[in-house]
Amino acid sequence: MGVELIWSLITGAALFGVGIYGALSQTNLVMIMMGVELILAGALLNLVAFWRYLHPDVAAGQMFVLIVMTVMALEMAVGFGIAIARFRSKGSVEMEEAVELKK
């Protein structure tokens, strides 16, 4: 098996793990979004590595990558929309202060 593929997958796993830590540990909405970005970055790297080293002749592999990039952009757009609405109504995007959403 190629060293390049394994190193890419391990890097993807590390980015995924760091992203999970960030998304769970941060209290600020924008920082949580950064964690989700890192999780998606890990997935993105895995997709590119699989396409490049296992099936470079199938262009659908690149298509998957474009879809994940779209998801990253959408997550940012909708997340910032919610952040602006929250900041406007409550003056903060701290998630620990958003307990009323549970009620």
Binding site: I10, F16, G19, Y21
Partner: peptide
């Protein structure tokens, strides 16, 4: 712990 478990599982 969650981040580490996710990393080890994926590796």
């Amino acid at each position: 712990i969650a981040g580490f478990v996710a990393f080890v599982g994926a590796v």
